[in-house]
């Protein structure tokens, strides 16, 4: 991705210049190499709980959790995406996308979301606001169990890695409300 290259180039050029100007060349040089070691350590520390959680989510999914969640979400999605819901393929992809997001299955959420976006783009202007709404929904994190963050906290020695759960949910809801509110306001006034 071109963007990541630009981000890295910006960080390196800026940091090297600043380090030279502020006389921190030694620390800056060492930081790059210790950073690489820390990346390995971070992955190793995360590995245990990340894999365990991945297994638990797989188990819950095989028990039909995703299907049940999809059934609950359908009425909600019909209200948020009235035009797209008339198209069966788009409606299915939308439900799958939101369900996968809630279950934290990023690898399943993106392909489903892309299918929904493609179907909506083909509908022309009828669904162009709904396509924006789909993007906003996907940029607000709606994960029910933020397992990577819990793994990160567990790796750092947290007593109860999930005790931030209520805070994450409330914050996700605030973010979603702000996104939907901004969407409702902007779509009315956007040309």
């Amino acid at each position: 991705m071109v963007f990541m290259t630009a981000l890295l180039l910006g960080i390196y050029l800026l940091s090297v210049t600043l380090a030279l100007l502020t006389g921190r060349a030694d620390q800056a040089g060492a930081a790059v190499l210790t950073g690489a070691g820390e990346a390995v350590e971070l992955c190793l520390r995360l590995a245990g709980s990340l894999c365990l959680w991945s297994g638990v989510m797989e188990l819950l999914e095989r028990c039909g959790l995703a299907r049940r969640l999809a059934g609950l979400l359908r009425p909600l999605l019909r209200r948020l995406f009235p035009a797209a819901s008339r198209d069966a393929a788009a409606a299915d992809a939308l439900t799958e996308n939101l369900t996968a997001n809630l279950l934290g299955l990023g690898n399943a959420a993106t392909p489903a979301g892309i299918r929904a976006a493609r179907a909506m783009a083909q509908m022309g202007t009828a669904a162009r606001d709904e396509l924006c709404l789909l993007i906003v929904l996907n940029t607000a994190s709606l994960q029910l169990l933020p397992t990577t963050i819990a793994s990160l906290r567990a790796a750092a020695g947290a007593v109860a890695a999930f005790d931030i759960l209520p805070a994450v949910w409330i914050s996700s809801l605030c973010s979603l409300a702000a996104g939907l509110g901004a969407a409702a306001l902007l779509r009315r006034h956007w040309p």
Binding site: L8, I11, L14, R24, A31, T34, A36, E38, A39
Partner: peptide, 19 residues
């Protein structure tokens, strides 16, 4: 892992550059 391996050194560098 590969993304972390590339990005963490850059982040550490940025942190001790004085920025």
């Amino acid at each position: 892992f590969p993304a972390l391996l590339v990005l963490l050194p850059a982040l550490k560098l940025l942190q001790c550059s004085g920025l």
